[in-house]
Amino acid sequence: MKVKNSIKSLRKRHRDNRLVRRKGRIYIINKTNPRCKARQG
């Protein structure tokens, strides 16, 4: 999992990426390619 300042650029890397908010943090998760994970905050 990558921790980034700007998450918008990571979201464009794969078309199945989803942006999820959990406990005040913003996550990017991907069901088809689980390696595409990122967190902000």
Score class of each variant (00 low, 15 high):
R11D: 08
R15F: 15
V20D: 08
R15D: 10
S6K: 12
N30A: 02
N17Y: 12
K4S: 08
S6E: 13
K2N: 05
R39I: 14
R25F: 05
T32F: 09
R39D: 01
D16A: 11
S9F: 14
K4Q: 02
R25A: 10
R11P: 02
H14S: 05
G41R: 08
A38F: 01
R18H: 13
R13E: 15
K37Y: 04
K31H: 06
R11Q: 13
N5I: 10
R25C: 10
L19N: 04
N30S: 08
I7Y: 03
H14F: 07
V3D: 06
K8D: 13
K23L: 11
K8N: 10
S9C: 05
R15A: 11
I29P: 00
K31S: 07
M1Y: 03
R15V: 12
R13K: 15
G41S: 05
H14T: 01
V20K: 09
R39Y: 04
R25W: 02
R18F: 13
N33I: 04
N30T: 03
I26G: 07
R25G: 00
R35S: 08
K37R: 07
M1S: 03
N17H: 07
C36N: 10
R22V: 15
R21S: 11
T32E: 09
H14W: 06
Q40C: 03
N17D: 08
T32K: 14
C36P: 02
I28W: 01
M1E: 04
I7A: 01
T32V: 08
R22C: 09
R21C: 07
R22F: 15
H14D: 12
R35C: 03
G41D: 04
I28G: 00
I7G: 01
K23R: 12
V3W: 07
L10T: 04
D16P: 00
L10C: 08
R25Q: 13
L19A: 03
R18V: 15
K4C: 09
R21Q: 10
P34M: 01
I29T: 11
R15P: 15
P34N: 02
I28C: 00
L10W: 13
K37M: 06
V3E: 12
K12V: 14
K4I: 12
Q40M: 04
R11I: 15
T32G: 00
R18Y: 12
A38R: 00
K12A: 14
R25D: 00
K2H: 11
N33V: 08
P34F: 01
K37T: 03
N33C: 02
R22D: 14
R18K: 15
H14L: 01
R35G: 05
N30E: 02
L10P: 02
S9G: 10
Y27P: 00
N30P: 06
